[in-house]
């Protein structure tokens, strides 16, 4: 038994032609709120669409891993995650981004997420960023895992999306 869920990754060392808005231009409080938790990082995340919610969740992850201002969009990495429920698909995508940093030391500075609504729900994220360089990048928190605790992703009556996600530190 080798545990493996539906997540894939493609690397692209080439410079990205047109990266999306750099995360340094985002105001964190417009993207996510940190909720009170005794030991770990617990976030409430918002988005106008499910794809924007996923982008904001990836931002919340990397915003807590490193100071993002100095991360440049020099190359791309593509991640894919699937699940039947939006919350689990989101969790798997963020978890895969965490592995990308922890194993490959890739820091993202922006991303774009596409959602395919065919069953199972499939998320494809293109992340723009670069490899961690201890001389230029300041790291903040070591994140162990993206937990399933109080995990949620729901569309509100307004049409906006809201998620809660808890990172074990």
């Amino acid at each position: 038994m080798n545990p493996c869920h539906e997540t894939q990754r493609e690397a692209g060392p080439q410079a990205a032609a047109s990266p999306p808005r750099h995360w340094r231009n985002l105001e964190p409080e417009t993207v996510y709120t940190e909720l009170l938790h005794p030991a770990d990082l617990f976030f409430e995340i918002h988005g106008r669409s499910f794809s924007e919610l996923c982008e904001h969740a990836l931002y919340a992850l990397f915003h807590n891993i490193a100071e993002l201002d100095s991360v440049m969009p020099r190359s791309t990495q593509t991640l894919q995650a699937s699940a039947s429920a939006p919350a689990e698909a989101l969790r798997r995508l963020v978890a895969e981004a965490l592995v990308l940093f922890d194993a490959e030391h890739f820091l993202a500075a922006g991303c774009q997420v596409d959602v395919s609504n065919t069953a199972p729900l499939t998320l494809t994220a293109v992340l723009w960023g670069e490899m961690f360089d201890p001389r230029r990048h300041e790291l903040l928190s070591e994140i162990k895992a993206v937990t399933r605790h109080q995990l949620a992703a729901d569309q509100e009556k307004t049409g906006r999306w809201r998620a809660t996600i808890l990172l074990d530190v």
Binding site: M1, N2, P3, C4, V99, D102, A103, E104, S141, E142, K144, V169
Partner: peptide, 22 residues
């Protein structure tokens, strides 16, 4: 080791001999 995922191997390859954070 046959029961270990590729992700776990990737995360573990260069962290032997490191203290960690937190």
């Amino acid at each position: 080791p046959e029961l270990i995922s590729d992700r776990a191997f990737r995360r573990g390859l260069d962290q032997v001999g490191t203290l960690g954070s937190g």
